[in-house]
Design a binder for these strands. Structure first.
Lengths: 138, 138, 138, 138
DNA sequence: GTGGTCTAGACCACT
DNA sequence: GTGGTCTAGACCACA
């Protein structure tokens, strides 16, 4: 399920954050769906529960999930009130990596293709095709 | 000139690497142009020379600059022999941030515009041997 | 264990890199085995931890080890996907020293013997999953 | 004639030493032949005369050339009294690089070919085709 | 003058 | 406890 690379320079908790974000963005994890418990996930991945905890906390800070004491962690509904601050940050990163890609010889066409390809995978975004059923929970 | 954020979670030397890479990619720093000396830059930015050194070393490892002991540090010529390994890495990062941007509500059109805008700034790419305006800077 | 010559013209960290490379190549240090911690090795060798760090970092760059923040440093699995660039470099050095050896009167036979001798010590190469004697060391 | 790589990590004077050694070893520069003067070589290569000077001094120390004040520098006759100390050093380097080559996947056969190829280029040396004379050595 | 190495000692981030 | 970053200050090697 999760393929963590312990050899990576990137901290494990960050890898976890990225993976979970991806699952949420691609709507493999749907709004209000429950995430695996800290302990079960820790056991499954054979890593320290504190590491999972840290990843969940980070996701909560970024607004991707919410936690309820005693019950668990759940996927937040997509807010769709454009979060300017975050968008600015992401665009900054994008600019950095797009420049580097172009510098390394990747063509514009290739990059546009990449965007389109990704677009197809991202949960319809704000008009997310037919999830009408995710409105309970707190 | 360089705006470093000493409080950032990103190490100073990495910030420096990114800034300098940017200057090289946009050809504000031209091939074989001399970079500011370790010590002068350290003084200008009021950070430790070792930190600058670390950044320069990293840039050297990544192939962006080369250093000569008694002489200084200089911009490497762009190789333009596509470095597959690096490209794969960059594309991975791009995928991550592009997904996130789309999820945050940035439109595809906007992203394509971003690419085109960046493309205009990145060094002419392959052929710029006869650049007429290589005045020093910094 | 490690014999470092602090007076040598070769930097300490490079001596360390060479020694550790040797231990890895001869498989005295096995894949995924943990290296001594930066601090413990520094204490043992009575040199500065930063120097050890630098050596470890260099080994990481060269692909011989990998480091995980809160855990330690470990031997990378041998990739065995021939790294052309590195091979070219090594062959260049070999040519230099082989010429010199021949010039100094070492016979071809002697050199071939040297190769065979070394070959016997270098980790079996491809297939050594079922090594029976992987006791720790260091 | 000399192709020096100013971008190399290796100091220029060392590159010079290596090149000149090579010319002497391959007997392109014959015994007692005069080397170019420090100043003329400096001019030709457009590098600092001090750098040439340093290279020549090093070659003199290693016994490859000799200098006569007011006259110039000349190739030393090959001594042929096996220089144990040097041979030990060279063998040490060879062991290092041979190990690495084998580790990187270069075959023994390939290495032996390399030796034979080099042997053909090295100035007959001591005539050591089947040198019967190289078996003493401390 | 340049880059490069090393030390001593502090503090942070991750597990 | 692990690796990683940073500083202040010293000394060396190269051109």
């Amino acid at each position: 399920m999760f393929e963590l690379d312990v050899r990576s320079r990137k901290p494990i908790y960050e890898q976890l954050v990225d993976k979970l974000k991806e699952l949420i963005i691609t709507e493999i994890l749907k709004t209000d769906e429950q995430l695996p418990s800290v302990r079960s996930l820790a056991q499954e991945l054979t890593i320290n529960p504190n590491t999972i905890q840290k990843a969940y906390r980070e996701l909560e800070n970024q607004g991707y999930i919410y936690s309820i004491k005693g019950k668990g962690s759940f996927v937040s509904p997509a807010t769709h009130q454009p979060n300017t601050e975050k968008i600015v940050k992401v665009k900054k990163e994008l600019t950095k990596y797009l420049s580097e890609a172009l510098f390394l010889g990747v063509s514009t066409a290739e990059l546009i293709d990449l965007i389109k390809e990704i677009e197809a995978n991202v949960g319809g975004g704000m008009l997310n095709d037919e999830d009408e059923s995710s409105e309970k929970m707190l």
